[in-house]
Write a protein that binds this DNA or RNA. Structure first.
Length: 246
RNA sequence: CGUUCACAGCCGAUG
């Protein structure tokens, strides 16, 4: 069964959801093998990522008849799918279903909500959830912080984002390449290039290697600001770090 | 640690 699960996951990741569904049918026909929650979750997630939400829901509905219970991963994938489509009422219906089934929402669930709200410009709502997490002891993790900081940067609240960025360290959360990427992008978009470059140095002091995304962000920011000369230098630095431009 | 969920850039595609 793990063999099937791995194959199905691989197909889903490559966007070959139909092939994955075919393999799933074979799996179901094989009386030796009983599909578990993991394979349902993998397929539901694959369908959501391909914008095939109604099929995902159908598969979700079929789980109980096969004696498999949905878990947090199942709900999170569906909620993520609905949020990405802006189907907030559906998302909140499944959020309710989740808790109604005795499955408490997780940090991942709340991070999905925060991230999606921020990307839809509903940053204040997201921030309320974020603050509520801290109050209630459902501690935001690095990804939660990254999503929230990104949202704040997108509406120009750079100082607030920077405050969160600094508070991560105090909480013992280690900023990763994404954390720096979010802040660097925020500063670049506000034409605060010195601060962006400063951060890229700071991350190296921490032993984090800027990647192609980091450099592309900086180079784009420098070009937009008409600092072509500095941008070229940055490209050289990037190549000397073993990264090729794409 | 055998399998499943959430985070940053540019470009292209479609509108």
């Amino acid at each position: 069964a793990h063999t099937y699960n791995s194959l199905i996951h691989g197909l889903c990741k490559r966007g070959l959801v139909d092939k994955a569904l075919n393999l799933f049918s074979e799996m179901v026909d094989d009386s030796e093998i009983v599909p578990d929650a993991v394979v349902f979750n993998t397929l539901i997630n694959g369908l959501c990522k391909s914008d095939r939400l109604s099929e995902a829901v159908r598969l979700f509905d079929s789980m109980s008849s096969r004696g498999v219970s949905a878990d947090a991963h199942t709900y999170n994938s569906l909620i993520h799918g609905f949020c990405q489509r802006g189907l907030w009422e559906e998302a909140s219906r499944y959020f309710g279903k989740m808790e109604g089934s005795g499955i408490p929402c997780t940090v991942v669930t709340l991070t999905i909500l925060i991230d999606s709200l921020c990307k839809s410009g509903k940053t204040e709502e997201a921030y309320e959830i974020f603050k509520e997490m801290i109050r209630s002891g459902k501690e935001p993790n690095v990804m939660t912080y990254n999503s929230m900081m990104n949202g704040l940067c997108l509406i120009g609240k750079l100082e607030e984002a920077q405050r969160l960025f600094e508070s991560m360290a105090e909480k013992g959360l280690e900023q990763n390449v994404y954390s720096f990427g979010v802040m660097i992008h925020g500063y670049c978009k506000s034409s605060r290039l010195d601060e962006a470059i400063q951060l890229s140095k700071e991350m190296q002091k921490r032993g984090l290697k800027p990647n192609q995304v980091t450099y592309t962000t900086l180079i784009d920011g420098l070009c937009q600001a008409r600092k072509d000369r500095t941008a070229e230098r940055m490209l050289t630095v990037m190549q000397s770090n073993g990264l090729s431009p794409d």
